[in-house]
Each structure stands twice: as structure tokens, then as C-alpha cells.
């Protein structure tokens, strides 16, 4: 029997009140404006694997990351970490120690006034993990070496490092409390492509060596393919497709997933004419009724406008869960025969 997943998320939702100040609202005679950043998503991450969430800006993927580490309380639903409700798990230092986060912007994620050794040692001190100052120093040196920096770098300040090196420092800090679970919020999207490769390789090595579990947030499908075991595609706060990585790329089922892959510039220069999906992502303050993708979807019909689809195993590729009436009804033309092969992407 499979062991329990390290993290389970059930019907998680989070809204933000983005109303104007009360007085202005009353004067203008308008109601409250509620932004539904995450609107009822569920998934589980088995130990030692990577689940990635992909989607365009505003789809709610970063909000999920923050909900999972307890930076926001959920508006609805629950997060279960190692069998414990998140709030209870986070109240226990020993459980809290086991989850860590890596952030997107290497220029904002390190306190500019602290030396690197203090930044890396902060979790060690917070959890009282080493008995002496000497042991702490040795641990910091070991961590810096582990992420490809020199122990001497500990004496420096963050501004003395390049973006890629700073991200290594961030990773060293995250590893310093010996975590089991890392939430990585766009860890390479601020980096140049050759440095991105360095960081992705490092993260994969660390996962293999330390048996880490990752929740990986990214907008870059090619990056996601390199690191993931399972991938969730998000659109307007909901999961539209959740599938094993290989299945998602060989047989994407949801029309949005297909549109997303179609939109990626083609590095192989096959001369293929791409037909970009029309329209733009609607506002999450007033999302469309029914399926949120229906205004842009070539397969939309009346049911899609009225009824919200739920994640169901897709016909033909049962490993993929797809929230799409067209797929459920077989209106999507079934499993795509040959997905384009030989495409490479994207951002340097």
C-alpha cells in the first residue's frame, strides 16, 4: 500500500478583499470587490516527488505556495502536512522545521544588512539545532559547500554576489533546518538561462541526495518538464488539468493546456505557423460563469458557460485528470494522435 503523501491539499481556496477604502466605496455606491485568487483546488504530493503548478500570471499558483507554508490562512478547505492540519503542524517547531521555501527574487529574498553566514544560520538558531557556536559555524560551512559556494563566502554581504549565487544562498538557508519538503516559488525565473541550468541541476541533485519533496511553482513549461513527476495546470485559481509529467507533454488534454503549449515559441524553426489562442485572461474579480476558460475556448458550448467542470480522469488517458466538459463528452476529438515533437522552449 502506498504510504501517506507528505502533503495533501483539499478544496483549498483563498480570497482577497481588494475593495477600495470604505468611505470611497460608499460615496461611489459600489460593493465589495473580492478577488478569488485560489478557488477550490485539491492535490497530494507523495514523499520524494515533485509536483509542479504551472500557469500564467494571476492564475493563483504563487498564492497556493504561500497557503501551503502557512503565510496566508485559507478562506476554505485545508492543508494537511504529514497527517497534521497545517495550523497544528506549524505550531510544533519540529514539524515547522521540516518545511521550507525558496523564493523567486534573489535580490529581495536575502536581508541586505545581514552577512551570508547569519542568513544561512537563521533557521539553525531559530530551531536551536546546534549546541555550540563552533558547531553552527561548521554547519554553515558545510551548507555553503553543498550548494557550490565557498565557506569563506559566509563573511560577505548579499550584494557582493550575482543572482545565481544569491539563489544558492537562498537554497542553503532553506536546507539548514534539514527540511523534507521545499516549496519553490519560481526559483529560476529571475535568472539567466545558463544560470537557470545550474540551479535546476543543483535542485535535482539535492532532491536525489536528500530525498526532498518539492512543490515547484513556475510559468515555464520547459523548466517544469525537467523537474516534475506530476504537473498541475492552473487557470483563474483552479486546476484545469493534473497529470503525470510525461502524459501531460505527450497527450495534453485540456484545451487550455494545449493552447499554452501551442503558444511557446518554436526553437527548432520548423516553419510551423502557430495559431495563438485569442483573448486574454479574464479578471479574477469577476470570473466567467461555468468553466473559466469558456470565453477563449474553441470547444465551448452552452454547458461550459453554465456548469463548472470538475477534475475527472480523461477519456483515453485515464492518468490525466481534466476539468473539461468537452473532454468528458468526447467532443475534443479524443486523444491527440501525434503531439508535435521536437520543440524546445523558451526563455533564456
Amino acid at each position: 500500500m502506498a504510504e501517506t503523501p507528505i502533503l495533501e491539499v483539499d478544496d483549498l481556496a483563498r480570497s482577497f478583499d481588494v475593495s477600495r477604502p470604505w468611505l470611497q466605496r460608499v460615496l461611489a455606491g459600489e460593493g465589495k470587490r473580492i478577488l478569488r485568487a485560489v478557488d477550490g483546488i485539491s492535490f497530494a504530493i507523495p514523499r520524494g516527488t515533485t509536483l509542479s503548478l504551472v500557469g500564467e500570471s494571476g492564475c493563483g499558483k504563487s498564492t497556493v505556495a504561500r497557503l501551503v507554508v502557512g503565510l496566508y490562512p485559507p478562506s476554505r478547505g485545508r492543508v494537511v502536512f504529514e497527517g497534521l492540519e497545517l495550523e497544528r503542524a506549524r505550531a510544533i517547531a519540529e514539524q515547522r522545521r521540516r518545511m521550507q521555501m525558496i523564493f523567486q527574487d534573489p535580490y529581495a529574498s536575502l536581508n541586505p544588512r545581514w552577512r551570508v553566514k547569519d542568513i544561512v544560520a537563521e533557521p539553525i538558531r531559530a530551531f536551536g539545532m546546534t549546541p555550540s557556536a563552533a558547531a553552527q559555524q561548521a554547519k554553515v560551512a558545510e551548507l555553503l559547500t553543498q550548494v557550490g559556494l565557498s565557506p569563506l563566502d559566509g563573511e560577505k554581504f548579499p550584494h557582493e554576489f550575482s543572482g545565481g549565487q544569491r539563489q544558492r544562498i537562498s537554497i542553503a538557508r532553506a536546507l539548514s533546518s534539514n527540511p523534507d519538503f521545499l516549496v519553490c516559488d519560481e526559483p529560476t525565473s529571475a535568472l539567466d538561462v545558463s544560470v537557470q541550468a545550474q540551479i535546476l541541476n543543483l535542485m535535482k541533485d539535492l532532491q536525489a541526495r536528500l530525498g526532498l519533496t518539492y512543490l515547484f511553482i513556475s510559468h515555464n513549461l520547459a523548466v517544469v518538464r525537467q523537474v516534475s513527476d506530476r504537473i498541475g495546470v492552473m487557470y483563474l485559481g483552479r486546476l484545469v488539468e493534473l497529470a503525470p509529467a510525461e502524459t501531460l507533454f505527450t497527450t495534453p488534454r485540456h484545451p487550455y493546456t494545449r493552447a499554452l503549449m501551442e503558444a511557446i515559441p518554436d526553437l527548432e524553426m520548423t516553419g510551423r505557423q502557430r495559431i495563438p489562442v485569442g483573448g486574454e485572461v479574464p479578471s479574477p474579480i469577476s470570473p466567467p460563469s461555468g468553466c473559466p476558460f469558456h470565453p477563449r475556448c474553441p470547444l465551448a458550448d452552452d454547458r461550459c458557460k453554465a456548469e463548472r467542470p470538475v477534475l475527472l480522469p480523461a477519456r483515453g488517458t485515464e492518468a490525466s485528470l481534466t476539468a473539461c466538459h468537452a473532454v468528458e463528452e468526447g467532443r475534443d476529438g479524443g486523444v491527440p494522435a501525434a503531439q508535435r515533437v521536437g520543440t524546445t522552449a523558451i526563455a533564456l
Binding site: A197, Q226, F249, L348
Partner: peptide, 19 residues
């Protein structure tokens, strides 16, 4: 070092160091 979209590679080619 550009990650490919069409396949998963175990180790991406990388250029060590920085500009």
C-alpha cells in the same frame, strides 16, 4: 542550457560561473 520542451534530461548542460 535552454531546457528542452520535448524531453526530460537528467542533467542540463550548464555554463559554470557568471558573466
Amino acid at each position: 542550457s535552454i531546457p528542452p520542451l520535448d524531453r526530460r534530461v537528467d542533467h542540463l548542460a550548464q555554463i559554470d560561473g557568471a558573466m
